[in-house]
């Protein structure tokens, strides 16, 4: 599953650590999601969309699988 985490984070000038703190996860988790190595759970995906204040489908793209 592809995502726009890195772009959205850069638009807000946040570091991975900043985003990790907002999501209450480790920096490694943010890094793994950005690189597509780890797909977040549904609750975390919703938390991410809430942090970026946009619908979940604008952050994650389920059509483009691995």
């Amino acid at each position: 599953m592809k995502n726009r985490l890195k772009v959205l984070r850069a638009e807000r000038d946040w570091t991975q650590a900043d985003l990790a703190q907002r999501l209450d996860v480790s920096r490694q988790t943010v890094n793994a999601i950005e690189k597509g190595k780890y797909d977040p759970s549904l609750p975390l995906a919703f938390r991410i969309s809430r942090v970026f204040e946009m619908p979940i489908e604008q952050v994650f793209d389920p059509e483009e699988g691995e």
């Binding site: 209450d24 996860v25 480790s26 490694q28 988790t29 793994a32 780890y38 977040p40 759970s41 975390l44």
Partner: peptide, 8 residues
């Protein structure tokens, strides 16, 4: 208490 990736 850890996050989901660390748990995995």
């Amino acid at each position: 208490e850890t996050d989901e990736l660390q748990r995995k």
